[in-house]
């Protein structure tokens, strides 16, 4: 790790009220550098509001958020500390992508040539002098990333960056963020696409209704939640096996597949042998993040 804890993001007691609605409610968590942290929650959980408070775009009702120990508004040159992508369609439609970046460079006191370097980095050089109006969604996301990379920051904050990207684009983004974290920087990515986070994130922070539900490394959370392992069994004699297991485990049938909870795969195999049932498939299923997530946030995704 080259940059140590420089870009660590610490959120403590962050709260935002909109009238009577508590969009974010006493939220605290930490994001470590050198790792990709997924920020998960159902729609309306308060993810975007939280990220905007970290970035000083929204004023918290109470609580603080710091990056490397400093509040965002205290950075003399924030672009060199933190890169952020908050929405894809955020440039003047009649302006070229290159000029959009050059304007940011000028304001941040960076040499204008950084604009071209950032465009090169995200593979947007051929479209540099085209107007933003004509950009596809994927190109807009790439321009967003280029703008976040302008100041070569220590931390990256991205709000739903995978939205609207094609599979190739998602893969590209994933590699880029992994590389970024690999260089010792902090990456905080919000998403409601759980499968994507499972592939990308090292740590996750889950919120619902503006409150923290769980935070920690992905494996710990996935393993820690559901002790109820599930065994998937495929057999031509499903009813007979279900009978044999009755009383020892909970069995549900789904399209000719038995889902067994309560006992492990060896026990299911033994029971099948005793009952004289042929097995075509016997798999222990680890719960995936999606299940964990649904379990954790069940009933908390109230409508706002």
């Amino acid at each position: 790790m080259t940059l140590t804890e420089d870009g660590q993001i610490v959120v403590s007691g962050l709260t935002k009220h909109y009238g009577k609605v508590k969009a974010v409610d006493d939220l605290s968590f930490a994001v470590r550098s050198g790792r990709v942290t997924g920020f998960l929650g159902p729609n309306g959980a308060g993810k975007t509001t939280t990220l905007r408070m970290i970035l000083n775009l929204v004023t918290p009702t109470s609580g603080t958020a710091t990056i490397g120990g400093q509040r965002y508004s205290d950075f003399p040159h924030p672009v060199r500390q933190v890169g952020a992508i908050l929405e894809a369609s955020a440039a003047h439609k009649g302006r070229t992508g290159r000029n959009h970046l050059r304007i940011m460079c000028a304001a941040a006191g960076l040499p204008l040539s950084r604009a071209d370097e950032a465009l090169e980095l995200v593979g947007l050089t051929p479209a540099a002098k085209r107007k933003f109006r004509g950009y596809s969604l994927g190109m807009r996301q790439r321009l967003g990333i280029a703008s976040a990379m302008l100041g070569d920051p220590k931390a990256l904050i991205l709000d739903e960056p995978a939205n609207g990207l094609d599979p190739e684009g998602i893969r590209w983004m994933r590699d880029l963020l992994r590389k970024f974290a690999g260089e010792g920087r902090t990456v905080l990515v919000s998403s409601h696409l759980l499968s994507e986070m499972e592939l990308l994130a090292d740590d996750i922070v889950i919120i619902a209704n503006g409150k923290l539900v769980k935070q920690g490394p992905v494996e710990t959370i996935v393993n820690g939640i559901s002790q109820a392992e599930r065994v998937r069994v495929r057999t031509p004699d499903a009813d007979k096996l279900a009978q044999a297991l009755a009383g020892k485990a909970t069995v549900t049938q789904e399209n000719g597949v038995l889902l067994v909870t309560g006992i492990g795969a060896p026990a299911v195999g033994e029971a099948a042998l005793r009952a004289g049932v042929v097995l075509h498939e016997l798999v222990e299923e680890r719960p995936d993040l999606e299940q964990v997530f649904l379990e954790l946030t069940a009933g908390k995704a109230g409508i706002r």
């Binding site: 775009l57 965002y72 508004s73 924030p78 940011m104 941040a108």
Partner: peptide, 10 residues
């Protein structure tokens, strides 16, 4: 573009 503007200059 207010977002980009105020991110660059808080």
């Amino acid at each position: 573009t207010a977002t980009a503007t105020f991110l660059t200059t808080p």
